[in-house]
């Protein structure tokens, strides 16, 4: 039985015909009040820039004019992007960069996590050492790797020549064929510790009893991994891969510092290309259209990320 107080009844009468959603909001008005400042800040620093970027993507911004003198051209920027050769080249680079970096960072991180999951002397020290690339500033790492790769007096080249394995230092970043794989190696080096930490956390959730039971049933190491460990890590793997993919899609520092997108645009990915279009060439309209397309792609990835997280929560809730 519901006891209705006079005060509550009066409040109900004040809001006749309120829908379910609005009623819920009203019921939680104090909660919404607490988050209102955060929502206001987000609207200013996130929603407005998104709106402005979308708006700008419909304008032409010639380099000889101020931004306020922009010219409305509808969807022309999008049409120009989708029909340009550079777009497809940069998109292919971005896909190679994102997939290559994500896949190998994950595999290497997972392998490192499996190795460190076992108990052995020096495990703590090794774990700390392996995390170093992740905590080093990306800017510093980029400069260090630029020197390591240097085509004339890089360390790798000097060692190879010194050992008689090469006549002259290999050309890593001044060659259109090798530059992108070389940058991906740097990115993997920097990112695999993140995957390692995530997977190590995931490995700790695999029940020992199940592994022991599988061993008693005669399962070998591979079978135990494939049938017991891996299924338990599926969700954390999904989340790790999605986070890596989003980070790589948005990656800027390594390619920009090491090559600036060159030589001959061979290492330009979306973000570096957008930066050059906007700040180097002042094509704010085209750069905005690129950004909108990138935003849509990342939102799609984000959708899958949220779904994966929700799936995790459902499973944990039903467990």
């Amino acid at each position: 039985m519901t006891i209705v107080t006079g005060k509550a009844e009066a409040r109900r009468r004040l809001q006749p015909g309120r829908s379910g959603a609005l009623r819920k909001i009203w019921e939680h008005r104090a909660d919404y009040g607490y988050v209102l400042p955060a929502i206001a800040v987000m609207l200013i620093v996130i929603a407005y820039p998104i709106y402005y970027t979308v708006e700008l993507s419909f304008f032409k911004t010639p380099p000889g004019l101020q931004l306020r003198d922009k010219i409305f051209i509808g969807f022309d920027n999008y049409a120009a992007i989708l029909t340009s050769e550079v777009f497809w080249k940069v998109t292919l680079n971005t896909l190679i960069w994102t997939i290559g970096s994500t896949f190998f960072s994950f595999v290497l991180g997972f392998a490192a996590a499996l190795a460190l999951h076992r108990d052995f002397v020096g495990r703590g020290v090794l774990r700390a050492i392996l995390i170093i690339p992740w905590v080093i500033s990306a800017v510093a790492a980029s400069y260090i790797w630029k020197w390591i790769y240097h085509s004339d007096f890089g360390i790798i080249g000097a060692v190879l020549v010194g050992l008689g394995l090469a006549d002259r230092p290999p050309n890593f970043i001044d060659n259109v064929s090798t530059v992108l794989p070389s940058l991906i190696v740097v990115n993997i080096w920097r990112e695999f510790p993140f995957a390692m930490i995530m997977m190590m956390a995931g490995l700790q959730t695999v029940p020992d009893q199940l592994l022991r039971a599988a061993e008693v049933d005669g399962a070998n190491a591979w079978q135990r991994f494939w049938h017991v460990t891996f299924p338990h890590l599926r969700n954390v793997s999904t989340v790790t891969i999605l986070l890596l993919a989003v980070a790589n899609f948005n990656s800027f520092i390594i390619p920009w510092i090491m090559t600036g997108g060159g030589p001959s645009n061979a290492s330009h990915i979306w973000i570096t290309h957008i930066y050059e279009l906007a700040f180097g060439r002042q094509r704010w309209g085209v750069a905005s259209a690129y950004s909108v397309l990138l935003f849509l792609m990342l939102m799609t990835l984000g959708y899958f990320y949220v779904r994966a997280l929700a799936g995790n929560e459902r499973k944990e809730g039903s467990a």
Partner: peptide, 24 residues
């Protein structure tokens, strides 16, 4: 010219890189 920075900092180096890398 107002276009000079783009010509000198982007188009000229791009031309050199396109020729020197064999891209063109």
């Amino acid at each position: 010219l107002p276009q000079s920075p783009e010509i000198m900092n982007i188009i000229i180096p791009d031309m050199l890189q396109n020729a020197l890398t064999g891209a063109m």
